[in-house]
Measured scan of single mutants.
Amino acid sequence: EPLWIRPDAPSRCTWQLGRPASESPHHHTAPAKSPKILPDILKKIGDTPMVRINKIGKKFGLKCELLAKCEFFNAGGSVKDRISLRMIEDAERDGTLKPGDTIIEPTSGNTGIGLALAAAVRGYRCIIVMPEKMSSEKVDVLRALGAEIVRTPTNARFDSPESHVGVAWRLKNEIPNSHILDQYRNASNPLAHYDTTADEILQQCDGKLDMLVASVGTGGTITGIARKLKEKCPGCRIIGVDPEGSILAEPEELNQTEQTTYEVEGIGYDFIPTVLDRTVVDKWFKSNDEEAFTFARMLIAQEGLLCGGSAGSTVAVAVKAAQELQEGQRCVVILPDSVRNYMTKFLSDRWMLQKGFLKEEDLTEKKPWWWHLRVQELGLSAPLTVLPTITCGHTIEILREKGFDQAPVVDEAGVILGMVTLGNMLSSLLAGKVQPSDQVGKVIYKQFKQIRLTDTLGRLSHILEMDHFALVVHEQIQYHSTGKSSQRQMVFGVVTAIDLLNFVAAQERDQK
């Protein structure tokens, strides 16, 4: 057995438009009618409502009807409940999964919650491996369901041993009777949507819809739904939504950006999952974080739909894509998950301010006199920076000697690579993860907040409520011999709460 199987392995699926269902090699399930009293909570997966979006479509000038398939009504709160249950049931049916076995899954959280929910009911041990950027709410729900959680670096490539995929496979090879159901490759993922989600949409719309818009992560949702719609409703256009920084969209030119990270969760990847059939997507749109969270908040405030950030991405694209539809036509959007997962993220004004998705003037509360002053007023001194090749031991000596707790790590040209902190280095040394002679590049981390000289002290204040420091950066445009230009970030300084307090105190003292 291989040590790991690539999540982007070539698909062996034989589905073709027009091929009889009787030739399918898979076990198919028909939607079942729910009894009045459910035998367990797993029976509350599927049969989610279709809700008309009344205000947002009109606000953006849509002539067509805009409908939302509300997947956050599933038992675990997301569309991923469907595939989690289906993968477990299919693994039980073919004898792969037996009582007492362990389920391991690399996930952005929602599939993990679905699997942990099913594992709690069915009696399996469950280990979820997820990147650090995923919300604390997801972690809390997983723990409450009895799952064990392993976190991995957000910026690790999918084929790196440190990625959530790599760590999951390492655990599988170490733990007896453990299984990775593997949402990236498992046919049960798109089949769950082909058999149930798509049929529900067709039934709820009486077979009449002209466009379907869905955000894409593993691709199982859009693949399964689109294949069924292509068979039953061939005139329906399928629109895929991919965040900026991901590479799922086609044509490839759409993916060209210097951005590699994004805040919206559960969609987009740096590889093409095996289950994603991009041939059934008629057109791709890219979405960005700001519009995703703005539209998610709009869905909550104006439509009462308590959905997550990827739902915002989907609707932001839908109001663009559906401009081509006329009166009497219908566009369906998939709202994948609930706001429950993001209470401390985009639902929080403070978080939105820190990330730059909300401006101070958007909030009406009274601010102190210094709130709208610029960061450049602080008069920061030149920063202490270190090269990635310097040793951890030497870096600790320098920081202690100069009285700093942290320093930016830059390359020879001064471009920011990340940050090192005294606390992080000492804990890594004590844990045996690094040696004093190791290069400081081994303990770089990139989960820090950046701020510009033109940003306000109010925004800085919000950042420092949650973080010990902020890195002050400025952009530099560099022209190359080819005539092309590129933008790079340079370090201007490091600012802490002490710097802000000293500035405010000094100004008030001078005024007296």
Results as ranks from 00 to 15, higher is better:
T261N: 02
G268F: 02
F503P: 12
E258K: 13
L363E: 08
V440H: 08
H474L: 08
N255I: 02
N255W: 07
V472F: 09
L248V: 04
F357E: 02
D499F: 02
E397F: 11
L464G: 09
I444G: 11
F346V: 02
L276S: 06
N424T: 02
L299K: 13
V333K: 02
L306E: 02
A311T: 14
L417K: 02
F271D: 02
R452Y: 11
A322W: 02
D282W: 08
M298W: 09
L305W: 02
D499C: 12
K433H: 13
T261S: 15
S287T: 10
V332T: 05
P336F: 02
A413P: 10
T274A: 02
D405F: 10
A301Q: 07
N341A: 06
M343P: 02
D242A: 04
E360M: 11
V317F: 04
A316K: 11
E303L: 07
K320S: 11
R278N: 06
E263S: 04
Q329M: 14
L305E: 06
G483H: 08
T482H: 05
Q302N: 15
L384E: 02
A321K: 02
A382L: 14
L457D: 02
M352V: 02
V415K: 02
F295V: 13
W369Q: 05
V434A: 14
G309S: 07
V333F: 10
E303C: 02
K512V: 14
V443S: 15
G493L: 13
K355V: 02
F404Y: 08
H474K: 02
E252G: 08
C331Y: 05
P436C: 14
L460W: 02
T294I: 11
I390R: 02
I398T: 15
T496S: 12
P436G: 10
I396S: 13
I238A: 02
T344G: 11
K433W: 02
V440S: 12
S481E: 15
L399T: 07
Y479A: 12
Y269A: 06
I390T: 15
K359F: 08
V415D: 13
R400C: 14
G356S: 06
C331Q: 06
I463K: 15
P408E: 02
T364F: 11
I416A: 02
K512L: 11
R452Q: 02
D510K: 11
I272C: 08
E263V: 06
T482N: 13
P436L: 12
K484Y: 12
S486M: 13
M419I: 11
F271E: 02
G379L: 02
S310P: 02
L453G: 05
I267T: 08
T364N: 02
S485F: 13
Q354C: 04
V319R: 02
L422P: 05
T456H: 11
Q439H: 14
K449H: 02
D438N: 12
Q259Y: 02
G268N: 02
T279D: 07
H462C: 10
Y445G: 02
V281C: 15
N341E: 04
H372I: 11
D289C: 05
T389Q: 02
T482E: 02
K446P: 09
V494I: 15
L460I: 08
T391G: 05
V281W: 02
R509Y: 08
H372G: 14
T344E: 08
L426E: 02
L429G: 12
I416P: 02
L335S: 05
T261F: 15
E324V: 13
Q478Y: 15
P383I: 10
S427K: 07
V472R: 05
R452P: 02
L305R: 05
Q476C: 09
T257V: 09
V443C: 07
E250F: 02
G432L: 10
P336N: 04
G414A: 02
L384V: 11
L417N: 10
S427M: 02
L422W: 08
R340F: 02
Q487W: 09
Q447N: 12
A497G: 09
L248H: 02
D455R: 05
R400T: 02
L335D: 05
V440F: 07
T314R: 06
R297S: 07
M298Q: 02
V319L: 10
D362R: 14
T454Y: 15
T389L: 10
H462Q: 12
Q259W: 06
A292Q: 02
Q326W: 09
T389R: 14
I396D: 10
P368Y: 15
H480I: 10
F404S: 09
G328R: 13
V443F: 13
G308L: 02
